[in-house]
Amino acid sequence: MSFYAAFGTVLLLLAITAPISLAFGFGGAMAARSAIAPLRWFGKLYIALVRGVPDIAFFLFFVIALDQGIEYLRHKIKCPDWDAPVRQGSDFLVCQAAKMPLGNSPQWVHEYYGFALAVVTFAIVFGAFAASVLYGAMKAVPRGQIETAEAYGMTSRQTFWRITVPQMWVYALPGLGNLWMVLIKATPLLFLLGVEDIVYWATELGASKTARFSDYPHPDWKMYYFLGLLVFYLAFTRLSEIVLANITRRLSTGQATAGGEALRKAKAAG
């Protein structure tokens, strides 16, 4: 039963992470083209760093780093008169009240906290990918459009929100669609973050069972479980591909791009 619920976990992660990382990406792209130099450097560093380092390393890093960061902050606030250092050799010690989640909280809080950490980690990593896509898309908006806006006396803020942002989506869509596929294919990495997802259950349930521990003894079935997962992901990405193709077609209608032009011609011919 938990195995099927784990599919829900994956879908939930996707549903939550996608908008958050899009927001992260939007912020990153805005930072990267900011007029303030430090902010611009930060944005560009953010994009470049995630591109240069394997995402798995980020996943493993952020889950511990975020956890320790939160606990450290709470430790500073809640126990100001604690004088022992937080790092003692290979131990990370904070006072009891600063533990996150609290040691006495029920099991589901621990699980949700782990899941939330995973969501934030995914959002940080995929936000950087989204930032580079959106950054390119903002630059792809034709110069003439911006000039027209300036000629109408719009400020740069107005130009950005009224002209650039509405127009950039059609340029961003191929990249974002691709990113969505990458995101789907990154969900099994939840397993590495300690969330009990489908990979976890596949290894658990697939392992050979003897009659002593289980009502349904069977030999090692992991291969078949993973074959099932493979099929699940194939179906999911295929479905996404079809939906994305539809959206692209709809968004391209009436746009001054090659795609829009092809649609217009097809309509005129048919």
């Binding site: 294919k185 969900t187 099994p188 990979v199 596949a202 993973f226 493979l230 992901y233």
Partner: peptide, 8 residues
């Protein structure tokens, strides 16, 4: 399909 699952 994810590379992760392919490895498994």
């Amino acid at each position: 399909s994810p590379l992760f699952i392919q490895f498994f």
